[in-house]
């Protein structure tokens, strides 16, 4: 069984102090660390597990500049067999459809049973790329997937709905799925593990080779004509408890007690 996984490199933002660039169009990326998008990490793990259970070949694809090789190396170290980099700056201002078109340029020529992406990326959070890609390929699909069971020429897929409910759907293969966090426990990748895959050659391609024109990708093809970022005011409502650790805990204990906690 062959599986294709599309992955993205994103800035790590949960512990970072974010600042907005002068134009207001993006965050200042200079001091940020980059990592594989969390949802995509689960997708790579799921692909490798499916391969381990049923045999086959896992191909990972990303789109960006050569710094994005890191996420491909990490995926190879997790057990992917092959990696493709669409090395192209032209996607910088793309919308989700533009990114999906770039990936489509490569994926349409691959032979696979299952195409995986993460549900969304932590940076733009559109939640669109995997499903637009499925539509461009004319594939059956399911989003928010938290379980995959392989059958004969088909897959039984568990989708996460609201309120602790799941939906069971059946898809004929080949099919596309967007993977939700928690579907598995991604394996840890050591530096040694990444060293071991350093000899695997990463295939490279670009927009020219894929016959993608500027009006399809990038700012020109994007449905977003302007984007202004603002840092929302946070904590406006919250009364912040300050002082020494002991002071803070005394205040917090008093609040808990006043509001009905055990004395």
């Amino acid at each position: 069984m062959n599986i294709v996984v599309c992955v993205k490199q994103v800035p790590e933002v949960s512990d970072a102090d974010l600042e907005i660039n002068r134009k207001g169009s993006d965050i200042d990326r200079e001091d940020l660390e980059f990592e594989i998008n969390e949802w995509d990490n689960y997708a790579v793990e799921e692909a490798v597990r499916l391969k381990e259970a049923h045999g086959g070949h896992v191909t990972v694809i990303t789109l960006g500049d050569e710094d994005c090789e890191d996420v491909l190396r990490q995926s190879l170290a997790m057990g992917a067999d092959e990696a493709i980099l669409i090395d192209e700056d032209g996607f910088e201002m793309s919308d989700a459809a533009g990114i999906a078109k770039g990936l489509h340029g490569v994926v349409k020529d691959l032979s696979f049973d299952i195409l995986l992406t993460g549900v969304q990326s932590s940076d733009n959070s559109w939640g669109q790329v995997g499903l637009i890609l499925a539509e461009l390929l004319g594939l059956p699909y399911a989003s928010l997937v938290v379980g995959i069971e392989m059958g004969d020429g088909k897959a039984t897929v568990f989708r996460e709905l609201e309120s602790d409910t799941q939906e069971k759907v059946e898809l004929p293969l080949p099919a596309a799925m967007t993977v939700q966090t928690g579907i598995n426990t991604p394996r840890y990748v050591s530096i040694l593990g990444i060293k071991k895959v350093r000899k695997i050659k990463i295939k490279e391609t670009d927009a020219d080779e894929l016959n993608l024109s500027e009006d399809e990708i990038g700012a020109e093809g994007s449905c977003v004509t302007s984007r202004k970022l603002v840092i929302p005011s946070i904590g406006g409502a919250a009364e912040m408890l300050t002082g020494s650790l002991d002071d803070i805990c005394n205040k917090a204990a008093q609040i808990i007690q006043d509001k009905g906690g055990l004395v």
């Binding site: 800035p11 933002v13 907005i20 940076d123 733009n124 959070s125």
Partner: peptide, 13 residues
């Protein structure tokens, strides 16, 4: 965007 730490104001074509 960015994990809910930034708001984006968008105009569409």
């Amino acid at each position: 965007v960015f994990g809910g730490k930034i708001n984006a104001e968008l105009s569409l074509k």
